[in-house]
Nucleic acid binder design. Sequence first.
RNA 1: GGAGCGGUAGCUCAGCUGGAUAGAGCAUUCGCCUUCUAAGCGAACGGUCGUGAGUUCGAACCUCACUCGCUUCACCA
Length: 562
Amino acid sequence: METKTQVVDALATVLPDIQKVDIESKIERPKDTTKGDYAFPAFFLAKQLHQAPQQIAQDLLAKIDQTGFEKIEVVGPYLNFFLDKVTVGASILDEIISDPANYGSSNVGEGGNVTIDMSSPNIAKPMSMGHLRSTVIGNALANILKKVNYNPIKINHLGDWGTQFGKLMTAYKMWGSEAEVKADPINTLQKYYVRFHQEAETNPELDEDARAWFKKLEDGDPEAMHLWEWFREESLQLFMKIYDLLDVHFDSFNGEAFYNDKMDEVIELLESKHLLQESKGAEIVDLEKYNLNPALIKKSDGATLYITRDLAAAIYRQRTYNFVQSLYVVGNEQQNHFKQLKAVLKEMGYDWSDNIHHIPFGLITEGGRKLSTRKGHIILLEEVLDDAMQLAKKQIAEKNPTLANADKVAEQVGVGAVVFHDLKNERLNSFDFDLEEVVRFEGETGPYVQYARARSLSILRKAGNPDLTNVDKKISDPNAWEVIKALGNYGDIVQKAAKDYEPSVISKYTLQLAKDFNQYYAHSKILVEDNEKLARLSLVKAVSDVLESGLALLGVQAPNEM
RNA sequence: GGAGCGGUAGCUCAGCUGGAUAGAGCAUUCGCCUUCUAAGCGAACGGUCGUGAGUUCGAACCUCACUCGCUUCACCA
């Protein structure tokens, strides 16, 4: 941040006719680090100065004040700036060591509330890898937004209402037994659900029966209500186990059922604004002018739909939290729905609908096939996490057999690998599930980052964890520079991740920092007795602090030893 | 057909608001544990950036056309 301003200021004094912001926008970071820390291309000045860019660069170099820089040099049309590594490095380390917890924080959010609709598994269905995506992306975004001083509100909009309960009740009444469900709730209910869809293909009466059961539920029929509560309770208990493992916690579990008594108002509002139309026996809102299909508010049998509930939820959230932003971390395949949702709210005259953002993510397939709960083609999250933990345990037994708390560490490493894998790439990328890939511990993975941090802590322990707050942090070793530069970028990285709602910006950064540190570690000896030892330890401490912070933003736990 | 996302090394992906010889990881081959954890470090190999035009001093990036893959388009969520 500040280092860039230094470059801008130096250039501004020799380019009085150019706006500072314009200069800043042209400054780039050379990919090749031997070409300096910042570079200024002179191409764009060629036209107005009527000179060759190479010549302009030369002239600027002659006039520019080089104090505070290690050197400035011209390569072709580029002016390359080399920062004073020792001084700049020491000040970056000082900043981190003096207040590690707040390093990288900023106030762009000004405390504003941001609701995050995330995870939202369906009751009576197992959690799949798709739910993992929503859960970990939402959780990471909440952490990232908090770091830039928004106030995130994590809402688990449980799928605890809807026609699937009608189907489930039909199936249960026809083929189910209480004992079977109690023995293994989710898998059994899942089995009923799959069977329902199989048999309904040849027997359409089942669909009618399911519709009837759901209608009963909506009308408060005691038997239907009882079954619903039972299914819900059993499911929720199992979900909580997974959330504990992922260390994800919610501010609200208000799911679909919570809005049952809030939908009449939505219908009334729509009616009073004359937005409802009848079409084929159903009630719709026409969205022609948004170039969207009509939003179906009420089915021909009078039952409500997803969007009606989401309208109620959006209005409720606005009233309850007065959000500055409302995020929905939901798969990309639902983008049409969210466009409709925003459009209907807009039609209702709610300008705050502009603050609603669908945060889509890519689809997970397996063997190129879309996963489908209805057809029973799913990847169970629980199994993936179990596999990952088992594998981590095996690794520990091989590589660090004397490790204390091996089980806990295996959990952190295994789960960390799965979570990190999900956050590593741009969230809109879809990917084909490959267990080996997901639970990999080498290369660009969560464990790689965890390992780099564990090694840094190990060094600090060996050094007796000295107090580093007031030590001289000047490091002359050029190997340290890439690490320090990376450390200095953290704040910008966090802001970019927040602005783009993109956790992968953080994961990529932690990988890069870990890589830079591992290189330094391999090439420079830290624990040698000389007058820069405490400065080097400061660097190591700063790395462990920032890696810990970055991993925490991602919701990945970091073991002190592994 | 409309809308959306994508096509970069054998595989998985980076590539910032257009800039200097297109970068990682995995896989393959080969080095490095008598020094701070080898879940590591280093080296080699590997690319017509889907195709064709255009804008520009300069295009993987912007525009247009085409092409391939996935998603979605009222009574599921």
